[in-house]
Design a protein around this nucleic acid. Structure first.
Lengths: 235, 235, 235, 235
DNA sequence: AATGAATGAGAGTTCATTCAT
DNA sequence: AATGAATGAACTCTCATTCAT
């Protein structure tokens, strides 16, 4: 006769639980998900969840932590330091989009869920999400740095681009699902182009932060004629 | 003695309820919001909510519908048919971003909330969201059509761009909040640039495998013709 | 067909709930009592309890409040101000013991339960219990005051006596149950004798608080003859 | 490598457990105390508790038993048979109050906790408590017995007095805590006076209806010889 | 002998929803 | 038309208790 409970070491069970939780949270959303459902999906009884992660919120936090770790790790190990900055950006972004494409559930938990739940969410969750954004931002910053160390886009713009990248990734998650022939590389390229656009605008308008940024010859080329300044546009 | 409850026509009451619901849903999220809270915020008793919209989900659906209507209407009335396509795109996108900036609550309900509630959510919500996306997609398609009726980007790319626009709008909602000096026009411009990039890609397909990182010289081409200054464009 | 729920005004239901709660709490103790059980005993569904008193602790607090009110009221209305102090003490104490004898459940809730539950109990509960003790203490103080306003026992001793009275009432609750022929008057008399003893001790040993207390002529008389030494008493 | 758990003889472990349990039960109450907490306080793992005492209730029962034993033993060994009865009563009561004062935790478990847990509590607990009461009752009976074997108070009255003593001890536990200068001897004296009162009542029954308030002269008679001042008495 | 791993059962609490007025 | 009164159902969380090692 087979024993009713399999005795597994704590760490294993914990990972099982987080695996299940990511699945369920991403499928039905944080609030709709019941701890019962997650416990069952993990093949565990409900009290284990509380013994191991303390609360439903703790469970969610654990999910966020683990998935953020995974994503950051994926990006980091792709964007190795021994290559040219722009190449790093490329590799990093590609890893990012690939992760999002390959780990749709992780992403949903990490991005959508963590965002739409009302404020009373653990500071840790916000921090974990920030780590991800910071990683991408840093990548964009590094990837748009000139060989001489000079910057062609400001930190602020890097942040914008990082956010747009995240937003795009998010917005296109479903779309990617419907068009499997589209590759993460496509997305990467688009975002890099956006980045370049962002960069050129600096060239075009003049440096904002006091750094005169010469158009890197051959890489980022200014648009020939000025973009109409919207600030003067009619309401 | 005056009757305690003012008898208001149904439509007025209903709008009050939806107003309150949008506020509350966007503030605390769908699940956390209680019908009680919304009813109170609307100055109505709880059973009224059920008489008018049938259920909490019905209430949410009503919100989505109305806000989607408002957004679509805003975009449509901005992108009038009597101007040049690219101008229309400009005006439409600007109206879109402006709406998002000006109606943060609507947007949160429409986009974030509607997304993060799990699968089993009313098909209608999904449809309403699609209407918005379709509107923008149509705009992009129209706006990138050449005078001769020829297209410079495919429908698919238009859809991508529309989604990126939505994603960007979403991703930058908070950011806009933190940087009030940024205008919807800025965002509009960025997205139009993305659109243009999207267009150019049709002229230069090939570098896909992810290693041609730098735009091959001459591939990112400014649009030949000047971007029409929106103020003069219609003539 | 009879409707499922009877619609009663809030106040009525609330009293029903408190009635039931006092019964159940006194029978099985605060922690063992389940809200379900109480709700059922009150002929109400569980949510009503939460709508009306907010929580289990709120329910308990309500019980304490009401029973304390009843007890204090009983003592007060018995110990009217228009009689001699010692008479007042007598009447008050008698009312007290009568209440305890007649409302065993109230007393258990008021005294035993409120005492034995761990600290984290609402300040209000403690206060309500204090009101009861203060009432008795005041009675003892007033009842042992001389016509001239002079005191024959200190406040401290009055407090002790009040506590002993409560303790005795408590200790004898069960005992009274087993010996129904014993009357509250018996208990009253004993306690008054204790009070007198307390008084005489002051007389006997000298005033402690600096007030020289003359034996109140005709009321509290020092013991005239020696208490017979039990060892020799039989002769 | 040394084995993680020290193998201690069963009895030692068991006492450790009961020690811890008394502490915890008295601090937070029976229901609030968790077996986990007690096991940890005892430096034992939870299953040990079940191996040794079978259940939480068993643990509580063990506590009651042991503390009752200790209390009874303290009283017994103080009230030795080789002294005069009244002296025995004095010594016994003093031992009783001293135990309560010195072992507040024991008393809380023994008296308050054991009382406030509802009916369905182990008969054994009730019995153990009765043993304590019986002990004191016996003491009172013996202490008020005349040399010739004649009784000056009935068994019933002795029982009442014993209960009042317990009630007083209980009621004054907190009070003693707040007034450390009060000694167990004080309490003893008061209770002995009550006992004497109880005795005198047999000589003077009649005034029951509550209006003969003042003790009829000559009924309350002081003991001829001084009550031994406990403050000088041997420990 | 001793314990980490595991759970069944049940507690308090909340909420969308309906009934009776 | 409008609402105070009422509840079924579900959720999070806890705990005494046991199993397998």
């Amino acid at each position: 006769m087979v024993s009713k409970h399999k005795r597994l070491p704590r760490q294993v069970r914990e990972q099982q639980m987080i695996d299940a939780a990511v699945q369920v949270f991403s499928r039905v959303g944080y609030h709709t998900a019941s701890v019962d459902e997650i416990a069952e999906a993990a093949g565990v009884s409900k009290p284990m969840v509380y013994i191991y992660v303390g609360s439903k919120e703790g469970l969610f936090t654990s999910c966020i932590h683990r998935e953020a770790d995974r994503l950051v790790e994926a990006v980091r190990s792709a964007a190795r330091h021994d290559v040219a900055p722009e190449q790093r950006l490329w590799e990093g972004l590609r890893a990012f989009f690939r992760f999002v494409a390959d780990n749709r559930e992780s992403w949903k938990v990490l991005y959508q869920q963590a965002r739409s739940q009302g404020e009373p969410f653990s500071k840790e969750v916000t921090q974990a999400r920030c780590r991800v954004m910071d990683e991408i931002t840093a990548l964009v910053i590094a990837g748009t740095e000139l060989p001489g160390g000079e910057r062609i886009i400001s930190e602020k713009d890097a942040e914008i681009i990082a956010r747009i990248a995240a937003g795009a990734a998010d917005a296109l998650t479903d779309w990617l699902l419907e068009h499997p022939q589209e590759t993460p590389e496509e997305l990467t390229m688009r975002v890099m182009e956006i980045a370049r656009i962002g960069a050129h605008r600096y060239y075009d308008r003049g440096a904002r932060d006091g750094h005169a940024v010469a158009a890197p010859p051959g890489t980022i080329r200014p648009i020939t004629r000025p973009i109409p300044d919207p600030r003067h546009a009619s309401d």
